[in-house]
Amino acid sequence: MRDVGIGEATGKIILMGEHAVVYGEPAIAFPFTGTKIRASVSESVSGNELTSSYHSGSLSNIPEALANVRALTTRLQKELVTPDFQLQIDSTIPAERGMGSSAAVAVAITRAFFDWQERDLTEEQLLFYVNYSEQIAHGNPSGIDAAATSGSHPIFFRKNKEITSFPLHLDAYLLVADTGIKGQTRAAVKSVAQLHEVDQAFTSNHLQQIGRLTKRAQKAIMGNRPEELGLLMTEAHLRLASLHVSNTTLNEYIRLALSEGALGAKLTGGGRGGCFIVLTKSKEDAERIGQKLKVAGVKDTWLQGLGVYQYV
């Protein structure tokens, strides 16, 4: 056993396929290295304790919002047969913004525990523990957050299918913007499920169309066709809005970005708040649109180039 175990993870961005991926359609996501998380774990003489921006103290008094952390660490402690621990979490990933915060926490914690115990950790084991945590956090997660926050390349993901990576050859920029409103992933996932029960034909049609848009988006990315990708992104957002997983704030920001010359824009993640993404042809366009959005009320923005492996 090491004195201290360390685990790290990145944030993630879902480019296409939100919600539809839960129903077997594909999604595209990639690690977002502009935001990161680090977990460190060591032996404690005073019971299991957590130090983080959301809770510091005994794990027995952890707030319900962190129930997934309590459940995951309890399981890891039992299955790896560890002593009582002191867990510290340091993160720059904004919580409840659709950037994979809860999955990244689980990735970092799992890696830290295995590192602490000097145990090899397979990708299969990592995804098992992360998906266990995500089920507690979100109810019926697609698994895409777990895959994207634990990897290092863009992924084409379909639930219960092999995850494949592909090159990101796109001469464009992606602006990630935070609405400042907490996303509501669990509520949005539940709402789509309820809509699917009430009107299966309507819901399935939109979900299938989002799946088709995602497949076309992968081809546009690999063929370096940013204008086409932008149109596909915007259409995907309209489909998601029809499924009631957007909101007025997101829609207004996206309309503003498009009116300022963005190639495309859409929500990213669970929706009903959180973040949205804007595709632009140049860095200058992205910075200009970012400033316009901040004046309009956006809380924060991040910029990432989408050329050959610029995201690494």
Rank of each mutant, 00 (worst) to 15 (best):
137 A>G: 03
147 A>Y: 07
118 E>Q: 15
121 L>K: 05
112 A>I: 06
159 K>W: 12
130 V>C: 08
145 D>L: 02
152 S>V: 14
142 S>K: 05
112 A>Y: 10
159 K>Q: 13
158 R>N: 04
116 W>P: 00
144 I>K: 05
129 Y>V: 12
127 L>F: 10
127 L>Y: 09
151 G>C: 12
126 L>E: 13
158 R>F: 00
119 R>A: 12
154 P>N: 03
131 N>A: 05
130 V>A: 06
117 Q>M: 14
120 D>K: 15
123 E>C: 05
126 L>R: 11
119 R>G: 00
122 T>L: 01
110 T>A: 01
124 E>Q: 13
154 P>I: 09
118 E>W: 00
140 N>D: 09
147 A>I: 11
147 A>D: 02
139 G>A: 07
128 F>I: 10
116 W>R: 03
117 Q>L: 08
131 N>D: 14
130 V>L: 04
149 T>V: 14
147 A>W: 01
160 N>L: 15
121 L>G: 06
152 S>T: 15
151 G>V: 00
140 N>E: 03
129 Y>L: 10
116 W>Q: 00
149 T>R: 03
155 I>S: 10
133 S>I: 02
118 E>S: 15
155 I>L: 15
157 F>G: 10
133 S>H: 04
151 G>T: 14
157 F>D: 10
130 V>E: 04
153 H>L: 14
158 R>Q: 15
141 P>C: 09
133 S>Y: 02
113 F>C: 07
147 A>V: 15
117 Q>T: 14
131 N>R: 09
112 A>L: 09
132 Y>F: 15
129 Y>H: 13
157 F>A: 10
140 N>I: 02
134 E>A: 06
134 E>V: 09
137 A>L: 02
114 F>L: 09
126 L>D: 09
139 G>F: 00
118 E>F: 00
143 G>K: 07
140 N>W: 04
159 K>V: 02
160 N>Y: 15
127 L>Q: 14
124 E>H: 09
157 F>L: 13
125 Q>F: 00
133 S>F: 01
120 D>P: 11
138 H>K: 10
118 E>A: 14
132 Y>D: 10
135 Q>L: 03
132 Y>P: 01
124 E>M: 04
148 A>R: 04
